[in-house]
Design a binder for these strands. Structure first.
Lengths: 246, 246
DNA sequence: CGCAGTATTGACTAAAGTCAACCCTAGTGG
DNA sequence: CCACTAGGGTTGACTTTAGTCAATACTGCG
């Protein structure tokens, strides 16, 4: 079981923004819960659910999904290994969105009680959770900009840039990462039709900006892709490895 | 000076989601700072600024603005009297977006130090701030859904529904509120051209869904507008007037 | 093998953008 | 008081982008 592994990833995300002592890290690592295996396209938290726990993604890709109208779906966030898609739920009575697996995935559910206890005992952890939530919101905000303001191929380019950085796979010039998302799902992220996604993806391929092979994304020229996407990674980093600001 | 008035509005927003004692409310009300008058279209926080204070809107309308490309602008949030557009900045080293006035406006800047001290002394206030940030993020997420998933006129309808609820102006059937936003600004919110906004607005007017007169919006039939927008106000309420969840 | 989900392609339609003109109004300075 | 100006609103003609529908392949899997 690689549960520890993933809690480690989560702790790394926290400490990238907030300095935590070994003690505090241990307290977060001690969090645990029932693990669940999910097939692709399974929802594991429903809009309006009164949940008693928050999820941590151990493996696979998950998404926050909403329905602007009866017919359409909009993915408003993608979560990867080590993310907590609904940490916010520890503060709210009801889930305000549906969470689904995009691929086969494994999650654990960590009781709100445990989360809130760690926050109470270690204020620095509460601070770290706060920054984690803010970072998540910053991504949503950037997605709004992406969906609102760029043309189709650039939206895709921007998404791939973001995922590359979030998976910490960016290397000097050229690199690959595993991101097995279907074109239909890309359409739900970018608010485009799947046909148009297909054509835009092909245009990116024709331009040599990305290569896709069975879920493996290769970026032959990072600078070129970044430029095509007007990608500025500052919204993802937002690091302040200090303990408190006062 | 109606500074107290507006801090009251802010406290009301906090207490709608988190029960606070009189003592705790007083502590928030005691926050203060330099007040500033702004003309329309002035930016008062710049992307990347290392700020030492967070803003509270006393009067007028403000917005969070980003630039997806060189040419275009995207408004990612609108803030009204009693809102704190950048409360999050108390947790981050740098402002991650530009804040601008949409109309003439008045703001005050509250030092991060004061904010963090209230949070430290009164954990319930920290909790309330946390929920405030989550509520703000929920709105951004809903905007993503709106921009991504609805056709032009419905986007506008949804925005008007949201603003009506946020200004607490919703009455049984028919009501008015002051929302003096230009069509160019509406375009930047909805990610549409101003020409198309004009036409979509006219279509809403033709259908009798809204009446606009020099910044005064009248909604003759709330249910009809809500229906046209598929508006569900739950993302705005998210109330849990309890103190802590444990 | 056959199914289900996914990817690709073409032909056509619809939504939204662009360009450009024109009008109206509030605020400015003479 | 009035001419001038800038910002905002309205409209028409045309272009571009993206959506829709539908057919055809490809893939992994039971």
């Amino acid at each position: 079981m690689h549960m520890d592994q993933c809690l480690n990833t989560f702790v790394a995300k926290l400490t990238s923004r907030t300095k935590l002592t070994d003690h505090e890290c241990q307290a977060v690592l001690a969090l645990g819960g029932k693990s669940e295996q999910l097939e692709a396209h399974e929802s594991f938290v429903l809009l309006g659910d009164a949940t008693m726990s928050a999820c941590l993604v151990l493996d696979g890709f998950c998404a926050r999904v909403s329905r602007p109208t009866e017919e359409s779906r909009q993915i408003t966030a993608i979560y990867i290994k080590g993310d907590m898609p609904d940490l916010y739920s520890a503060f709210l009575p009801q889930a305000n969105a549906t969470l689904e697996s995009l691929t086969r995935a494994t999650i654990i559910r960590i009781p709100h009680l445990a989360i809130r206890q760690v926050m109470r005992v270690y204020p620095a952890v509460a601070e770290a959770f706060g920054r984690y939530l803010i970072a998540d919101a910053a991504i949503t905000s950037e997605w709004l900009i992406n969906v609102g303001g760029r043309e189709a191929a650039r939206k895709l380019a921007h998404l791939f840039c973001e995922m590359a950085v979030r998976m910490a796979k960016v290397e000097a010039h050229s690199f690959s990462f595993f991101f097995p998302i279907s074109q239909t799902q890309l359409a739900e992220v970018c608010a485009l039709s799947s046909v148009h996604i297909n054509r835009s993806l092909m245009s990116l391929r024709r331009d040599g900006l990305i290569v896709v092979d069975r879920g493996m994304i290769t970026i032959p020229n990072w600078d070129a892709l970044k430029k095509a996407a007007s990608f500025d990674d500052r919204y993802l980093v937002s690091s302040r490895p200090s303990r408190f600001s006062n």
